[in-house]
């Protein structure tokens, strides 16, 4: 191929790369968000940069989530064990789980692990 052809080819690839970069840039910083699932359904997406209190679940089985200083915690829950309430405020890593209420808070940033055991 001639030099001009190569230039056009690289220009085309550069446009594709720039488009992909723009796409991922616009997608935002996923690690600042947490997704809250209630019984397997996405109930809330939390912006961890915005402090607030949120209630998820039903009238009988509920959790109150608090976002503060970039981290989320379960501040109150209807479950008997209160395991979820004892969980430290978090912004990454393993999900916060309330088994009795089937509530899961998942983080985008899993620190590059395929799994966390413990």
């Amino acid at each position: 191929m001639k030099t001009r052809t190569w230039i056009i080819l690289f220009a085309a690839l550069a446009v594709v790369c720039a488009g992909l970069s723009l796409f991922f840039f616009c997608a935002g910083d996923a690690s600042r968000y947490a997704e809250v699932y209630s019984d397997g359904e996405l109930a809330l997406t939390l912006d961890l940069q915005v402090d607030g209190t949120y209630r998820v679940g039903t009238a009988d089985q509920w959790n109150v989530l608090t976002v503060e200083n970039g981290k989320v915690s379960v501040s109150e829950a209807s479950c008997p064990s209160q395991d979820c309430v004892r969980h430290l405020p978090s912004d990454s890593g393993a999900p916060i789980v309330c088994l009795p209420n089937r509530m899961v808070i998942k983080f985008a940033d899993e620190a590059g692990y395929d799994a966390l055991i413990g």
């Binding site: 978090s90 990454s92 890593g93 393993a94 999900p95 620190a111 966390l116 055991i117 413990g118």
Partner: peptide, 17 residues
């Protein structure tokens, strides 16, 4: 495969991998 071992002080984070 990378598997983290939970930190007993904060089990949502890994203490080792």
């Amino acid at each position: 495969w990378v598997v983290g071992i939970a930190d007993p002080a904060d089990p949502s984070q890994a203490i080792a991998r």
